[in-house]
Amino acid sequence: MMTLFPQHTVSPAQVPGLPHRAGLGLKNEHFIEVLETLPDIGFFEVHAENYMVDGGPFHHYLGLIREQYPLSLHGVGLSIGGEGPLNREHLARLATLIERYQPQSFSEHLAWSSHGPVFLNDLLPLAYDAATLDRVCAHIDQVQSTLKRPMLLENPSTYLQFQHSTLDETDFISAIIRRTGCGLLLDVNNVYVSCINHQRDPLSYIDALPLSAVGEIHLAGFAEDTDSLGDRLLIDDHGAPIDNAVWQLYEQVLTRTGPVATLIERDNQVPAFRVLHAEAQQADGYLSQVNV
């Protein structure tokens, strides 16, 4: 009888970084379907704060899904741009989650969401000046040294600008990456939303960023409103399918960056899993074109 040599294959869940595939935001309404069908998805991403609970179904299902898939941990509550010091308790909770789930990636936002004792549950805009740059860089240094790993910083979607900003958003982001060594989570929908809202050209915005630092891409849908002049005002609401203009911009980004892990985000009006899976397959299609 023939003996097979033991095969030392690495399980897809244990790869060192996020694969250059499309991933999906993991919604609790899809836990069971994901576990029962094990769909061919490159990775899953979760909002860290949803899993800062003691026990119960969230940890139960994430633990099982983590055994099968690479994981991206995406924070929405650290308030990296806040005027005050970072919330150490929150940072400690992040460290605990990272220790538990060993995610391939951790990311947070270029924004603030807490002031004093109040948490506002939104990603609020920053003035781009030297003092803010120093503060954000110090906070990112603190995050990276506490978590003992580099983080990815996500570019924001914004609706207004500050009169005392002295730097372009792209210069501000480039300086942070240069000074802290963090990576860039390039949210292509945020680029499109902000550029329409501030009358900029999305491609020249992208070309002004250090694209070699891109560690992940986000794609999402937006809502549309108008401002007091009746001009288009796009709102990053994660509640709609990805717009054609954003798909086109994504394709152009990929020709510049090469294949990058790409997340489809949907946090509101969450549709059936197969609808999100179809968007992931569409992104995988673009990714395989640049792979060739």
Partner: peptide, 15 residues
């Protein structure tokens, strides 16, 4: 301020 000159209040309303 809004880069197109729109009333900032109409955009602050989004936040």
């Amino acid at each position: 301020f809004s880069s197109n000159g729109a009333d900032p209040a109409s955009r602050f309303a989004v936040y």
